[in-house]
Nucleic acid binder design. Structure first.
Lengths: 343, 343
DNA sequence: ATTAGCACTCGGAAATGGTGAGTGCTAATA
DNA sequence: TATTAGCACTCACCATTTCCGAGTGCTAAT
């Protein structure tokens, strides 16, 4: 048992991982020895493999099977061995084409981005939309619907729209609606939605509005318009994971699909990804998510200026084509950032 | 071989179907003979079963297994044998609680409805949102974003909102925006969105606007705001179908999930359901959808007044608890209709 | 340090045999 | 005439066995 990886053992480890990524079968010593590049006998390879197993990089499903990389091996692989391939021109074109957001609803565009990520990687695409509360308030507008009901529309600077139907109790005069929105637009100009929330609460307590029912109402309605839950995740290409041979087990799949459906846990994981800028990789148990055993998550943040807006990425088996997927995720995030920058 | 079903053979068929619905196992003659209600020896039951098989109501997976109902049997069952159970009070409460749409975005509310259908039925819930084009125009509004970009907001009478970012080329004056929306609101008042489409095209050709660039622009922008694709389907509880024993086969499931993801074919099927009012049932091959073998679809239309707005329902295996699911779907559709009526 | 050789291990596929649920047919019965 | 008991037969399913070969670890030779 050695405690330091020699150049040769690194090569062998890499060969094993890369073989396993394509075949999804335990890799034997013969296979590695045949792998062009290094000319060693199976026996030698076996010795090294035994060492690697002792160090926790490899595991054997059973005595007479080959070896399988552990999470630790993948971690080492992406950290030290992998030279990230530059993105293929064809892929770049595809991303460019499908991420075109011009004139589209942001949600739709991000959903399409997620779909694109899934189809390019052949795994599952995932996009966390920007928190609405991080946006800057631009405009609020009230539109009279039938009876005593209003449609309130809240627009933020990046073009995202929140709308809500409000029951007013009694009928409002159109002129009052205009007054209300003027008042609010002036009051809230330039604030982030989070600040808007506070501002409204503060204002509601202030004396001057106590005697102005119209303003009071305006504040109340605008408060109702603010979204209470505001994280949206787009998960597309779920069916792709069914193609992976490691998920033939039905109960495994059930777990995974349930996790996708609930989204809650996934959300907190993505939140964690938001903290570090750039590309982020969770391998297997690193995600601390019971449903994620055997799965990896590659994400990248997208941003305008210095503000991290959201994350996007790909979920697949730990045995994932990291070399191919990482540049895709990276490039996509940068592209989305640039497209949102223009807004 | 008889060509008419006697009372007794109907009873036996019913017993077989209902047993199969719970167990998902081929039903043998002993089981039926033991079934309380009819006191016949297994041998007699066997004779009847042989007849039923000849008539195409039953099939045997292999010689020494029991019999399994065919699509034809299910069809006969729902048409003639099934007395639809009234909906349980608890279910009714649950539906009432979760379908509460007050003040929510219509899309969100329908998604929740779909989720509710899935959790109550333990199958997959499906809701087709109202076509936007069937709605009546209420209001259009332009909001200036940074630079030369506009946010156009189109509100229809039921509160649904379409918004779109428009690249204007050069900067617009706020006063012009107001003029534009006034012009359009007046022009399009009371038309359905479909009529709006035509109206705009007609108006664009008319002479008077040739000399008024502002109006021309207004028309162009409003046209851009109209949705081009406008059918939204909410499919929730997909993971539920993984629980069904008949879908342990991985390739089957892949097909089904792909179908859910693509939605295209499903959409045309739902369109067909829209044509007939009320509850609609497609059993197995009746849907003429390759992915639907072994699956059934129960839908009901929801409407305001005489207008069919959309459909909602449940997808599950042909071996579905029709007696329980049908009233759920029916009741939900009626409730949704009533809730939208109020709008 | 590397490698050839060899005995050994163990999962997976194929072959085998027994079991039982279920059937169809025939002849006896009410 | 309709029903039923009886019986031989079928065939999926399960458990057991056997066999094969890929892969291993160890040892001795290079």
């Amino acid at each position: 048992m050695r405690d330091k990886l020699t150049e040769r053992s690194k090569q062998i480890l890499e060969a094993i991982i890369e073989d396993y990524i394509v075949t999804a079968e335990p890799v034997g010593s013969r296979t590695v020895s045949r792998s062009h590049g290094l000319s060693l006998s199976p026996a030698t390879v076996r010795n090294v493999m035994a060492d690697l197993e002792d160090m926790g990089f490899l595991a054997s499903p059973h005595t007479s099977a080959g070896r399988v990389p552990t999470d630790k091996a993948y971690r080492f692989y992406v950290d030290s061995l992998l030279e990230v391939r530059t993105i293929a021109q064809g892929e770049q074109d595809e991303i460019l084409k499908r991420c075109n957001m011009a004139g589209r609803d942001l949600g739709e565009a991000l959903k399409e981005t997620s779909r694109m990520l899934s189809s390019l990687s052949h795994y599952t695409g995932i996009v966390l939309a920007p928190r609405f509360t991080a946006n800057v308030f631009r405009h609020i507008e009230f539109i009279k619907l039938g009876g005593s009901r209003l449609l309130a529309i809240l627009v933020s600077r990046n073009g995202t729209v929140q709308n809500k139907i409000i029951e007013t109790g009694d009928e409002m005069r159109p002129a009052d609606l205009v007054k209300m929105s003027n008042y609010l637009n002036h009051l809230l100009k330039g604030l982030t939605i989070a600040q808007v929330k506070e501002k409204i609460i503060g204002e509601m307590k202030s004396d001057k509005i106590k005697y102005d029912t119209l303003m009071a109402k305006a504040l109340e309605y605008s408060q109702q318009t603010l979204p209470e839950s505001d994280s949206e995740v787009f998960i597309e290409g779920q069916a792709n994971i069914l193609e992976q041979p490691e998920f033939t087990d039905v109960t495994r799949m059930k777990d995974i699909f349930r996790a996708f459906e609930e989204k809650g846990q996934l959300l907190s994981l993505l939140d964690r990804c938001m903290e570090a800028q750039g590309v982020n990789i969770y391998i297997g148990a690193e995600a601390h998510l019971s449903q994620m055993v055997g799965m990896s998550l590659i994400t990248a943040t997208y941003m305008t200026g210095r503000n991290t807006l959201g994350v996007l990425g790909v979920i697949g088996p730990t045995r994932m084509g990291y070399a191919k997927v990482i540049p895709i995720v990276d490039y996509t995030a940068k592209l989305v950032s640039r497209l949102l920058e223009l807004e």
